[in-house]
Design a protein around this nucleic acid. Structure first.
Length: 236
DNA sequence: GCGACAG
DNA sequence: ATCTTGTCGC
């Protein structure tokens, strides 16, 4: 079943407000924990799909057994779009629906894998870090594009990586998850080290470029959006 | 000022 | 993110 995601009271309306929230919350990010051990416990993927025409958003959370990568639980949530897409402010668009989907799970999510960035962000507070602070859960970000960051190309074999830097700080890593295929871009969200985040991503990519968590959540939120769009309309 | 820019 | 068919290759 799909729950309804409302926009929280006080959710930012303007870009200025949203940036102020990021500046206020980023101090709460915890960076001195290693995080759960890869291959143990549960790992949850979250993703969101949009229908801008109908002002609809659908989020999905899919819990996998970290050892077997089998799905053990899932949930979806639909609602109104909470914020426009603005580079650097993606969290304000995605998080209300994502939080509603996580709340609807029948068990703890364990480590949460987000689409996008955590610390690798203009104000060091991308959606993975933001979700971690709001929920207290360990989170990481896995992005498909380098955003504003640049890096050298990792060696062509699976497992190789190069740093993603902002100045001299390593804010993330370009990580090759398949031989000869474009890397993914991993960054820390909350309560997980960068080394451990990369280890998790490798454990979650036995066959494809993207983590199984992301692939499952992507498929599920698209389905939830289709079904929400089809509902309440005359059959034809 | 102009372009680039996670999803 | 989303609009969109077939096609080349393992």
């Amino acid at each position: 079943m799909t729950t309804i995601a409302g926009v929280p009271a006080g959710w930012p309306t303007t870009e200025e407000e949203a940036r102020a929230v990021q500046d206020a919350l980023r101090a709460r990010v915890v960076l001195d924990e290693t995080g759960p051990k890869p291959g143990t416990g549960h790992v949850t993927g979250v993703d969101v799909a949009y229908d801008d025409e109908r002002d609809l958003v659908a989020a999905a959370a899919v819990v996998l057994d970290a050892a077997t990568l089998r799905v053990v639980a899932e949930s979806t949530a639909v609602g109104r779009i909470a914020f426009p897409y603005v580079p650097g402010l993606l969290a304000f668009r995605e998080l209300p629906a994502v939080c509603a989907a996580l709340d609807a799970l029948d068990r703890p999510p364990g480590l949460v894998v987000c689409d996008g960035y955590g610390l690798a962000h203009p104000r060091r507070f991308g959606l993975a870090s933001h979700l971690g602070v709001l929920t207290g859960l360990p989170t990481i970000g896995v992005a498909k594009n380098p955003f504003t960051f640049s890096c050298t190309d990792p060696a062509p074999t699976r497992g190789s990586s190069t740093p993603l830097r902002a100045g001299t700080d390593e804010v993330g890593r370009a990580l090759r998850t398949r031989d000869g295929v474009k890397p993914v871009f991993v960054s820390v969200g909350h309560r997980v080290s960068l080394d451990n985040a990369c280890a998790h991503v490798l454990a979650l990519t036995p066959s494809y470029r993207l983590p199984e968590t992301t692939r499952r959540a992507d498929a599920l939120c698209r389905r939830a959006l289709r079904e929400a769009t089809a509902a309440g309309r005359p059959a034809d």
